[in-house]
Nucleic acid binder design. Sequence first.
DNA 1: CATCCAGTGATAATCATTATCAGATTGTAT
DNA 2: ATACAATCTGATAATGATTATCACTGGATG
Lengths: 159, 159
Amino acid sequence: MEHRIDRIKKQLHSQSYKLTPQREATVRVLLENEEDHLSAEDVYLLVKEKAPEIGLATVYRTLELLSELKVVDKINFGDGVSRYDLRKEGAEHFHHHLVCIECGSVEEIEEDLLTDVEKIVEGQWGFEVKDHRLTFHGICRVCQKQAVSAASTNESGKE
Amino acid sequence: MEHRIDRIKKQLHSQSYKLTPQREATVRVLLENEEDHLSAEDVYLLVKEKAPEIGLATVYRTLELLSELKVVDKINFGDGVSRYDLRKEGAEHFHHHLVCIECGSVEEIEEDLLTDVEKIVEGQWGFEVKDHRLTFHGICRVCQKQAVSAASTNESGKE
DNA sequence: CATCCAGTGATAATCATTATCAGATTGTAT
DNA sequence: ATACAATCTGATAATGATTATCACTGGATG
């Protein structure tokens, strides 16, 4: 964790930005909640627990900055708020998401999976791919099981 | 065009919604600007040209309705507004987009391209894919050419 | 004709995000 | 240490997209 903060610190310094206490607190919250997909408001509330004097505007500014530096990715699942997702260290591409339309859970896929597709896009459309966003909407493992057990509980024979 | 409006009309009726003049005007605007990715405001202004008495709220309501019926897809390119994109007739999946980070142009890809990837996701993650969103960010053909010609005009030998 | 109700238009309300601005903090040169 | 400039911050106002409200309309039904 300290290692990753160091890296981010260097990244900031290389563009002559500072890792202020507020920014560090924000980064720590992101690191500690890497699995989640926090909105700016979420991050603000969590940061406030460790640094109560921080302002919402600063959180927005920090997230914007981290977004420019490609430390985080700003994503939008269509629910009206932007969410911020840490890039894995060394990842040159954004990871993918599996959004469950039943329970709303979001799972991440680290594998690239798109190498072939990008080759096609570059070759056939002459488009130089720099990054991608891929989200699948569907039904997660858990909800599939629940659907099955619900069907078998209701022994009418029909779904 | 009339054919497609008829289809949409039937789709509405099947859920006991009506194709009111306002809704029809909105659908026509979407059909006539199928290549673009109009925001609600864009649609509103275009609809107003043919039906000046229409209200913005009605346009929002119609777009929301069409979105629920999967006639249009609501997309977000991260510029703060939702955009509405007609689904191609019979398409079970959403089409993909190539967003140019230089000029902001948006190109569409109708081909699926993700069949293999979806198989992997279903097999390896046990996720039942219902739909997907795929956007590539990069540099379009036009901007690539401009970059090349700008470099050769500036004959310093360096880029 | 009376009634019902989805649909509409105008506008107020909401809510996420951004802009503003005075003050705090930091780094640097003296 | 001191002065200065630049960066950063917190509070809050402003913005802008979207949604909620509410009185009204127009067509369908009996």
